[in-house]
Nucleic acid binder design. Structure first.
Lengths: 349, 349
DNA sequence: CGTTATTATGGGAGCGCTCCCAAAACCACT
DNA sequence: AGTGGTTTTGGGAGCGCTCCCATAATAACG
């Protein structure tokens, strides 16, 4: 790389054509003679030319960059291998669409700063937000500023918001039904916080399964957790007073805590209490007994988010997607992963 | 936000001054009368002005953006809560220095594409690379193209490369010494792959501890793993033939595999075989028995990487850091986390 | 071989900013 | 009031590109 990278004009001179022609060639536009096109490409390669992104986006008003906003709470809130996988999905899809990714991983107070620096300074064509809480303050702002965005985590109360989410309701229902199929009748649940969409949805799925089975909805069999191990432990201690024979736990980390609480009072899993978790976190597979859980398509969540976002951004006709159409939404299927904690397997290693 | 964001010139007109004066105000430059400065700020606020990043970096030749390159192998290679934590460290530090972050998480073939698109098109002022393998092909390229970079994971053979890493040698040595202190004498190790710096360094620390204790270095007590659970399982099966009374396992995931292998032949941990892992992954705390391990300052790794990178980039006098000084390096301390698998604790919960 | 339609090429303008230099305004002191 | 110095302000130039329009070259046709 030369100390100063070559410019369009320099390539043009070297190739004996004009700036405009070189521009046409590198942008794959028509109306260039094949031989000229080829000659220009040769010079471009030889001189190691690459268009300056700043100049390009200054005039085209597009940065070819998408923002990814990850709340600081990511560690506690998202199940363990979640972030790497969702990021891979996001990165692969962005790459495919020739977009770059700008990462924002900041706490609430700094979020404001990022909002101004990156979004308002027109560095970003759109954003993907890992949004777990119902009342994310960013959503109304983005809506107001007409910035295209997709949330990972659904926002049912914002009709204009586009989102992608796992089918938490269905996943929770499958998990609960699975416990019922094992003959369990006092099925309790440890929910996530009511401030989180996933928490509510998984609770909803649990209740739907009971309703369908014509079982009573006993409020005493519902304990609210906070998605942490300690929270699961405490919630389980409380539930044990009700003597449930099975518990659907809204995430694996809490299930680990529940396991600890159950074992502490001398009960056995799954013999006395069957357990199903959610997320298929890494710990689930290595827990003792290995945890039956619900797997979400994490990679696909990221992948789909970007695909929706690009549809929102890229012009359809002369209009941008978000001007022509309603919000885009996708709910991806979840899948039950049967291991030992639910009692469906008889002794496995 | 107006449909078309205001420009410098528009602010200038509204405030009754010139473009240059507004520029001085928003860049906090001297030589503006305080009353004018205040008036300009008012107009800026009122009109919701924010400087256009593309225009700025076009003329200043600085993007205020740093790249973060994460190899696709991140899932298997880096211990579980590693990525979120290192990213938080990176993000916080970048924020503090007013830099944006561009994320690249691509497989090898696409890495080339990213290299050209982002680095060559001058979108990036520098890059941080999560670099676990000794022979990372990106390093010589970055060196050649004189792009400022810092690797997370040391590269001992590249004298010009700047890096930050955990003190793997010392951590491994502490772990092994700890086992020796428990009275264990046949201490084996399961290493990481020899192609990875951390693998080699941890092996080196293990050997140093044995040497210091005047114990023989028995090659039969060294098994190479690949940092996966299955790899740890296989390696442990092999080691069991040598009847070790303790094993230092180079990461927690392999330690989980080792645990499984040990239990399978009816041996007990820590009574028959004591175990120490590395990384302090989430599974370590919840394993049965809880794993003694070595904690790395993951957040600080990210934080320090950015701080070094900024020192490399920002001008000292009129020269850029990487023109004036040698490479910058930092090795951060690791810490032994004592739990039950090493036999140092008598029964805990 | 003109005349018109079509394709290929060149160059001006301008995106929104920073940098630089010249001009204006203000400030001492003689 | 005059001189030299400093601080404050304004505007031109230009960063490297895309967009648009004018012109040149070529093709198509009577």
């Amino acid at each position: 790389m030369a100390h100063k990278p070559p410019t369009l004009e320099e390539i043009a001179k070297a190739a004996g054509v004009s700036r405009s022609t070189v521009s046409r060639v590198i942008n794959d536009e028509p109306n260039v003679r094949p031989e000229v096109r080829q000659r220009v490409w040769q010079v471009v390669e030889a001189m190691g030319y690459h268009p300056n992104a700043a100049a390009r986006s200054l005039v085209s008003r597009r940065s070819q960059t998408l923002g990814v906003i990850i709340p600081q709470t990511v560690n506690t809130v998202f199940a363990d291998p979640f972030l790497p996988n969702v990021l891979r999905g996001i990165a692969d899809a962005a790459n495919e669409h020739k977009y770059h990714l700008m990462l924002s991983m900041v706490s609430r107070p700094l979020e404001e700063d990022f909002y101004r620096r990156a979004l308002r300074s027109q560095m970003l064509d759109g954003v993907v937000i890992l949004s777990a809480f119902l009342d994310d303050p960013l959503i109304p702002r983005l809506l107001r500023d007409r910035i295209p965005f997709v949330t990972i985590g659904r926002h049912p109360h914002e009709p204009a918001a586009s989102y992608v989410d796992a089918d938490n309701v269905r996943g929770a229902r499958m998990a609960t039904e699975h416990l019922l199929r094992q003959g369990r009748r006092r099925v309790a649940t440890i929910t996530g916080p009511a401030s989180m969409i996933a928490g509510l949805d998984r609770r909803e799925g649990y209740q739907a399964a009971l309703r369908e089975a014509d079982l009573p909805l006993d409020e005493n069999l519902i304990a609210e957790g906070d998605f942490t191990e300690a929270g699961g432990y405490v919630a389980m201690q409380q539930l044990l007073l009700q003597e449930p024979d099975a518990v659907f736990v809204a995430n694996d980390l809490m299930a680990i805590g529940a396991l600890r609480a159950i074992r502490q009072v001398g009960r056995r899993v799954p013999d006395d209490v069957a357990l199903v978790g959610f997320d298929d976190a890494q710990i689930a597979a290595y827990a003792d007994p290995p945890l039956t859980t619900v797997r979400q398509p994490v990679y696909e969540l990221g992948d789909t988010a970007i695909n929706l976002l690009v549809r929102l951004i890229e012009p359809v006709g002369s209009l941008r997607g978000y001007e022509t159409q309603d919000s885009l939404r996708a709910i991806l299927p979840t899948e039950l992963v049967i291991r030992a904690s639910c009692g469906a397997q008889r002794r496995s290693a």
